[in-house]
């Protein structure tokens, strides 16, 4: 059965006593919440706990959800906070040593394309764990989850200008960790495009 009710209709139904309306909300958003939690936590067990906490928190507090807001943005906000809470409880919210970030292989490997892609993904995940909470959060919400600047601003309760500056700093840090940028701000030697040029 395809659920055709809007988010706000489901919320109203839930608050009106429809026991299954919240189940529909879960079905609609669980994958997105899971993705946020996994990318924020970096560990599937932690992410599962954070995803559970996200929906339990949403269940408890949905009565205070503002009607003019987007449910998806609200859930992203809860998921980020739940993830950070889990990480703090586990004591895992510490940067990993820089040498843990795998080097990115060339993307010109032809039949090895999948391996290159996996290598890139591993490097990105490792680099993400090295970012501060603030920077990881904006990267996850904007660059990985696809939220727009105003949505990230609403989710984090900060001005759009703050999102822009945080995002740029976060990307610069990621670029350095991934070898695209040297510490002096110039383009780094490990950029895939540079590697590709060197191999030609």
């Amino acid at each position: 059965m395809i659920e055709e009710r809007t988010d706000h209709e489901l919320i109203a139904a839930h608050l009106g006593g429809d026991r299954h309306a919240f189940d529909r909300i879960v079905e609609r958003y669980e994958k997105r919440v899971w993705a946020v939690c996994l990318r924020m936590c970096g560990d599937p067990d932690d992410a599962r706990d954070a995803a559970q906490d996200t929906f339990v928190t949403a269940f408890r507090s949905i009565g205070s959800f503002r009607g003019d807001a987007q449910l998806s943005t609200w859930l992203h906000r809860i998921a980020v906070n739940a993830s950070l809470d889990v990480l703090r409880k586990r004591g895992r919210n510490k940067s990993q040593p820089v040498e843990d970030v795998p080097e990115i292989a060339s993307d010109e490997a032809g039949p090895e394309e999948q391996a290159v892609r996996a290598s890139r993904a591993a490097a990105v995940h490792a680099a993400l764990t090295r970012l501060s909470e603030e920077h990881r959060t904006v990267i996850v919400l904007h660059d990985l989850q696809g939220l727009q600047y105003p949505e990230v601003a609403e989710a984090l309760d900060v001005p759009v200008g703050t999102v822009k500056s945080r995002l740029h700093r976060a990307r610069t840090e990621m670029a350095r960790l991934l070898g695209h940028l040297k510490d002096d701000g110039t383009e780094g030697p490990a950029s895939p495009s540079n590697v590709s040029r060197n191999r030609r």
Binding site: K31, W34, A35, L38, R39, I104, R117, R120, A121, A123, V124, H125, I139, D143, L144, H168, R171, T172, M174, A175, L178, H180, L181, G185, T186, E187, G188, S191, P192, S193
Partner: peptide, 20 residues
């Protein structure tokens, strides 16, 4: 230009991530 190239390379790496 180098900064922009580095940002774009970083975004290209993000694009390499599979859907979760």
């Amino acid at each position: 230009r180098e900064m922009l190239a580095a940002i774009r390379a970083t975004l290209a790496d993000f694009a390499a991530l599979d859907e979760v």
